[in-house]
Computed example of a mutant assay.
Amino acid sequence: MKLLVSALEPSSNLHLASLMKHLEGKVELMGIFDSKLSTKPPLYTPDQFSVMGFLDVIERLGFFWRAKKEMAHLASEADKILLMDSSSFNIPLAKAIKKAFPSKEIIYYILPQVWAWKPWRAKAIEESCDFLAAILPFETACYQSKAEYVGHPLLDLLPPIRTSLPKEERIAFMPGSRKGEIGRLFPVFREVARRIEAPKTLVIPSIYEGASLEEIYGDLEGFELSYDAPKTLLESSFAFICSGTATLEAALLGIPLVLAYKARPLDYFIAKNLVKIEHIGLANIFETRRGEEPLHEELLQEGVNVEALLEAYWRCDKEHFVERAKALRGYLRKGSSLRVAQRILEIDSKVIFNDG
C-alpha cells in the first residue's frame, strides 16, 4: 500500500514513528515526513517547513503553494492519504486532493483545534476528509459524523506516570525548540536557575545535537545538559517549560510545572485576538473542559519574569499535582497509533466482495 503523508511538524513525525511500528512492511511512505522513517526519500522534509510566527509564514507563501500543488499531484499514485496537524497547509491540501481524486480516502490525524478558533473549518474538514482521528475526547462534538476519539498520541511515547516525588530536589528547564523562543525565554530561566539551590538540567531538543549550543543558548554554566526529555522529567521535582506539547508531556508524567510563553509582540497580539481560549496549556484546557481547576500556573509575555516564576515554583503543591495528574492520564485513557494504523490498513468491504 502506498500512503501519502503530510507531516510537517517534528512532533507529528514522532507520532508517525509510533504509527509506523504498526505499519512496518505494510505501507510505502510518500510525501512530507522525516527521512529516517523510510528507505525511500520524501518529497520534502519537515525542516523545510519550519517557521516561527505569522510574518515567517507570509514570507514563504510561494513555497507552501508549490509544495501543496506537488503533493496534490502525487496523490494520484497513493492508495490512501494521511494528514497530520498543520491545518494551514493540510486543509487546502485535503480540498485539492478530494477535488482531483474523490474516491481517495483521506485520514486526518491530530485535528486542527476548531474548538479554540475558526470553528467554521470543521465543516470544510469533514467535507474533504473521510476519517477524523480525534486525539481529545471533546473534539468529536465539533463534527457531524466522521470523528472518532482514538486516544492521545503522547501516551504511545511516554512511560507510566510517576507515582511519587523524587527524594532530592532537581529542576528541569525546557525553554522550547525554536531558536526565537529559546532566545526570549532562556535568559529569564537562567536567572531563575541561579536563585534555586538544587541541581538544574537543561533539556535540549535532539535537532541541536552537534550544534554550537553556546550560540543558541548563551551561558550554560550551572546546567547539566540532556537530550532525553522524558528521562529528565522523571528525575525532576519541578519543571519550567515553554508553552507547547512539553507541558502536557510533563503533566502526564506527574511532574509539577509552570508554563511560560513569550512571543514576539505582533505574533502575540494576533494570536490573542484570533484564539478564543481561557488557557494555553493543554493540560489546563483538558482540566477546565471537564469542570476542574487549572492544573498548573501559566505566565505570559511580560508576566514571564524571574520573581513570578520563582513564586510559582515555591507556591506549587507538588503532591497534590501528582494526584491530579493521575486523573488527567485516566481521562485520556490510551494511545492512538494502533487505532489509526487499523484504519489505514482497512480494506473496503466492496473490494472484498468483488474479490469473491
Rank of each mutant, 00 (worst) to 15 (best):
A133M: 04
Y143H: 13
G151E: 09
L157I: 09
P187W: 00
P160N: 04
E148P: 00
S145I: 00
I171N: 05
P160Y: 07
L158V: 07
E148K: 12
C129Y: 10
S128M: 07
A124E: 15
A141K: 14
I125T: 03
E168K: 15
I161P: 11
S177R: 12
E168F: 11
R170N: 08
C142D: 05
A147D: 01
V150P: 03
P160M: 06
C129R: 10
F131E: 00
P175G: 06
R178E: 10
M174H: 04
A133D: 05
I125N: 08
S164A: 10
A124G: 09
P137Q: 13
L132I: 05
L154W: 06
E126I: 10
G176V: 09
R162N: 09
F173C: 02
A172H: 09
E139M: 03
I125F: 08
F186D: 01
S164L: 06
C142S: 15
G151N: 05
P175E: 03
E168M: 11
K179E: 14
P187Q: 04
T163L: 10
A147G: 03
C129T: 14
S164H: 12
L136S: 01
A124F: 08
C142P: 02
S145V: 02
T140V: 15
A134C: 12
E169M: 15
Q144N: 14
E169A: 15
E127K: 14
Y149N: 04
A141G: 00
V188R: 03
G183N: 14
G180H: 13
F186W: 01
T163Q: 14
E181L: 02
E169L: 14
L155F: 09
S177W: 10
L132Q: 01
L154V: 11
L136N: 04
I125D: 11
P166S: 09
S177I: 12
K146A: 00
K123R: 13
R162L: 12
I182H: 00
A124C: 05
A124I: 11
E139Q: 15
I135F: 00
E181S: 10
I161D: 09
F186R: 01
G180R: 11
F138P: 05
F173I: 03
I171L: 11
P153G: 09
Y143S: 06
T140F: 01
T163H: 11
V150E: 01
Q144G: 08
V150C: 02
R178F: 09
F173L: 10
P175H: 05
I161F: 06
D156R: 11
E181N: 06
H152R: 02
E126N: 04
P175L: 07
R170A: 13
H152T: 10
T140Q: 01
P187E: 00
G180F: 07
P137R: 14
E148F: 03
R184T: 07
Q144L: 13
P159C: 08
E127F: 04
